[in-house]
């Protein structure tokens, strides 16, 4: 892998590079959820919309499993960020 490829930012919310993701997969963090816990990928405001597919592809390349057999990790609500003031108002907006 050349150096420029390593520096590509995969998770823009948490500024995690391809090099870091590959390094932690090699250390045994071989599920999306484990990479999320150690690198915070997918934990930012976009909730993995930008990085999930790319990370699953890296996991597939490293483990030899097809992407379809790799658990995509947990999706949690709310699916888009919502302001505290709106939530606090409940149904009475």
């Amino acid at each position: 892998m050349n150096e420029r490829e390593e520096e590509i930012v995969i998770c823009r919310c948490e500024e995690v590079t391809l090099g870091e993701i590959r390094e932690w997969i090699d250390r045994g963090y071989q599920t999306f959820d484990e990479l999320k816990r150690v690198l915070r990928v997918g934990m930012g405001p976009c909730q993995g919309r930008g990085c999930r597919e790319m990370i699953l592809r890296e996991l597939s390349l490293k483990t030899g499993k097809p992407v379809s057999e790799i658990h995509p990790g947990t999706f949690r609500p709310p699916s888009k960020p919502v302001k505290l003031s709106l939530l606090a108002a409940g149904g009475d907006t």
Binding site: R76, K83, S85
Partner: peptide, 16 residues
């Protein structure tokens, strides 16, 4: 949140 820390009104919740 908004009662104790009113300036968080515009902060967005991303996950529960």
């Amino acid at each position: 949140f908004v009662k104790l820390l009113p300036r968080t009104r515009g902060v967005r919740v991303v996950r529960q």
